[in-house]
Protein backbone atom coordinates (compact mmCIF):
# COMPACT_ATOMS: atom_id res chain seq x y z
CA UNK A 1 0.00 0.00 0.00
CA UNK A 2 1.45 3.31 -0.98
CA UNK A 3 0.50 6.56 0.68
CA UNK A 4 -0.97 8.00 -2.49
CA UNK A 5 -2.66 5.32 -4.51
CA UNK A 6 -4.09 6.80 -7.65
CA UNK A 7 -7.28 4.78 -7.20
CA UNK A 8 -8.88 3.28 -4.09
CA UNK A 9 -8.59 -0.42 -3.31
CA UNK A 10 -11.90 -2.24 -3.20
CA UNK A 11 -12.75 -3.92 0.10
CA UNK A 12 -12.29 -7.65 -0.62
CA UNK A 13 -14.83 -8.69 2.05
CA UNK A 14 -17.78 -7.10 0.30
CA UNK A 15 -16.31 -7.21 -3.18
CA UNK A 16 -17.84 -10.68 -3.41
CA UNK A 17 -21.28 -10.09 -4.87
CA UNK A 18 -23.33 -12.22 -2.42
CA UNK A 19 -21.71 -10.54 0.59
CA UNK A 20 -22.22 -7.12 -0.95
CA UNK A 21 -25.92 -7.88 -1.39
CA UNK A 22 -26.24 -9.12 2.20
CA UNK A 23 -24.64 -5.97 3.61
CA UNK A 24 -26.72 -3.69 1.37
CA UNK A 25 -29.92 -5.46 2.45
CA UNK A 26 -29.03 -5.22 6.15
CA UNK A 27 -27.97 -1.59 5.78
CA UNK A 28 -31.49 -0.61 4.63
CA UNK A 29 -32.66 -1.33 8.18
CA UNK A 30 -32.37 1.47 10.72
CA UNK A 31 -29.70 1.30 13.40
CA UNK A 32 -30.72 -1.11 16.17
CA UNK A 33 -33.14 -3.10 13.99
CA UNK A 34 -32.52 -6.79 13.32
CA UNK A 35 -33.82 -9.31 10.83
CA UNK A 36 -34.34 -13.03 11.35
CA UNK A 37 -32.26 -15.45 9.29
CA UNK A 38 -35.15 -16.90 7.21
CA UNK A 39 -36.42 -13.46 6.28
CA UNK A 40 -32.98 -12.36 5.09
CA UNK A 41 -32.55 -15.64 3.26
CA UNK A 42 -35.83 -15.12 1.44
CA UNK A 43 -34.80 -11.58 0.54
CA UNK A 44 -31.37 -12.35 -0.90
CA UNK A 45 -32.44 -15.69 -2.39
CA UNK A 46 -29.58 -17.88 -1.17
CA UNK A 47 -29.53 -21.39 0.30
CA UNK A 48 -29.24 -21.51 4.10
CA UNK A 49 -25.76 -23.05 3.87
CA UNK A 50 -24.57 -20.44 1.42
CA UNK A 51 -25.95 -17.58 3.48
CA UNK A 52 -24.39 -18.99 6.68
CA UNK A 53 -20.97 -19.18 5.04
CA UNK A 54 -21.11 -15.60 3.86
CA UNK A 55 -22.47 -14.39 7.18
CA UNK A 56 -19.57 -16.05 9.01
CA UNK A 57 -17.08 -14.17 6.82
CA UNK A 58 -18.94 -10.92 7.41
CA UNK A 59 -19.07 -11.56 11.14
CA UNK A 60 -15.33 -12.28 11.22
CA UNK A 61 -14.69 -8.97 9.50
CA UNK A 62 -16.88 -7.26 12.10
CA UNK A 63 -19.39 -6.08 9.48
CA UNK A 64 -22.38 -8.09 10.68
CA UNK A 65 -23.61 -8.84 14.19
CA UNK A 66 -25.10 -12.30 14.71
CA UNK A 67 -27.31 -12.74 17.76
CA UNK A 68 -28.72 -16.12 18.72
CA UNK A 69 -31.83 -16.09 20.84
CA UNK A 70 -34.81 -18.26 21.70
CA UNK A 71 -38.38 -17.42 20.97
CA UNK A 72 -40.90 -19.89 22.40
CA UNK A 73 -38.13 -22.50 22.70
CA UNK A 74 -37.21 -22.17 19.03
CA UNK A 75 -33.78 -20.80 18.22
CA UNK A 76 -33.84 -17.60 16.18
CA UNK A 77 -30.81 -15.94 14.64
CA UNK A 78 -31.07 -12.17 14.47
CA UNK A 79 -28.82 -10.31 12.05
CA UNK A 80 -27.84 -6.70 11.76
CA UNK A 81 -25.12 -4.62 10.16
CA UNK A 82 -22.55 -3.08 12.50
CA UNK A 83 -21.27 0.48 12.33
CA UNK A 84 -18.06 -0.88 10.83
CA UNK A 85 -20.11 -2.69 8.20
CA UNK A 86 -22.11 0.42 7.37
CA UNK A 87 -18.92 2.44 7.00
CA UNK A 88 -17.33 -0.29 4.85
CA UNK A 89 -20.32 -0.21 2.51
CA UNK A 90 -20.17 3.56 2.33
CA UNK A 91 -16.44 3.44 1.53
CA UNK A 92 -17.00 0.71 -1.04
CA UNK A 93 -19.72 2.73 -2.80
CA UNK A 94 -17.52 5.81 -2.74
CA UNK A 95 -14.60 3.85 -4.21
CA UNK A 96 -16.82 2.53 -7.00
CA UNK A 97 -17.79 6.08 -7.82
CA UNK A 98 -14.14 7.08 -8.02
CA UNK A 99 -13.30 4.11 -10.24
CA UNK A 100 -16.21 5.01 -12.46
CA UNK A 101 -15.01 8.59 -12.81
CA UNK A 102 -11.46 7.42 -13.51
CA UNK A 103 -12.71 5.12 -16.24
CA UNK A 104 -14.36 8.01 -18.04
CA UNK A 105 -12.09 10.20 -20.16
CA UNK A 106 -10.96 13.14 -18.07
CA UNK A 107 -10.58 16.38 -20.06
CA UNK A 108 -7.96 17.91 -17.74
CA UNK A 109 -6.41 15.63 -15.10
CA UNK A 110 -5.36 17.29 -11.85
CA UNK A 111 -2.02 15.49 -11.71
CA UNK A 112 0.15 15.23 -14.77
CA UNK A 113 1.35 11.61 -15.20
CA UNK A 114 3.80 11.26 -12.35
CA UNK A 115 6.67 8.81 -12.83
CA UNK A 116 5.45 5.45 -11.51
CA UNK A 117 3.12 6.47 -8.69
CA UNK A 118 2.30 2.95 -7.56
CA UNK A 119 5.39 0.80 -7.64
CA UNK A 120 4.76 -1.10 -4.43
CA UNK A 121 1.60 -2.97 -5.31
Amino acid sequence: MTAHDPLPELDPVIHAQPRLRIVVALATLNAGDRVAFPRLQQLVGMTPGNLSTHLRKLEEAGYVAVEKAFRRRTPVTWLSVTRTGRRALEDYTWSLGRLLNAAEPQPAPQNPPAPAPSEAS
Binding site: L7, Q17, A25, L43, T93, L96, G97, L99, L100
Partner: peptide, 28 residues
Amino acid sequence: GAVASPTSPPASPAESLRLIDAQRKQAA
Protein backbone atom coordinates in the same frame (compact mmCIF):
# COMPACT_ATOMS: atom_id res chain seq x y z
CA GLY B 1 -3.27 8.65 -20.54
CA ALA B 2 -6.06 6.45 -19.23
CA VAL B 3 -5.45 5.11 -15.76
CA ALA B 4 -5.82 1.35 -15.63
CA SER B 5 -7.60 0.19 -12.51
CA PRO B 6 -5.20 -1.45 -10.05
CA THR B 7 -7.80 -3.98 -8.96
CA SER B 8 -10.06 -4.57 -11.90
CA PRO B 9 -13.36 -5.73 -10.44
CA PRO B 10 -15.06 -8.63 -12.18
CA ALA B 11 -18.09 -6.44 -12.73
CA SER B 12 -17.58 -2.87 -13.86
CA PRO B 13 -18.00 -0.18 -11.20
CA ALA B 14 -21.11 1.03 -12.97
CA GLU B 15 -22.55 -2.47 -12.86
CA SER B 16 -21.68 -2.84 -9.16
CA LEU B 17 -23.33 0.48 -8.37
CA ARG B 18 -26.43 -0.62 -10.23
CA LEU B 19 -26.44 -3.88 -8.26
CA ILE B 20 -26.18 -1.97 -4.96
CA ASP B 21 -29.02 0.32 -5.98
CA ALA B 22 -31.26 -2.55 -7.09
CA GLN B 23 -30.60 -4.55 -3.93
CA ARG B 24 -31.25 -1.50 -1.76
CA LYS B 25 -34.60 -0.85 -3.46
CA GLN B 26 -35.61 -4.50 -3.25
CA ALA B 27 -34.73 -4.68 0.46
CA ALA B 28 -36.52 -1.42 1.28
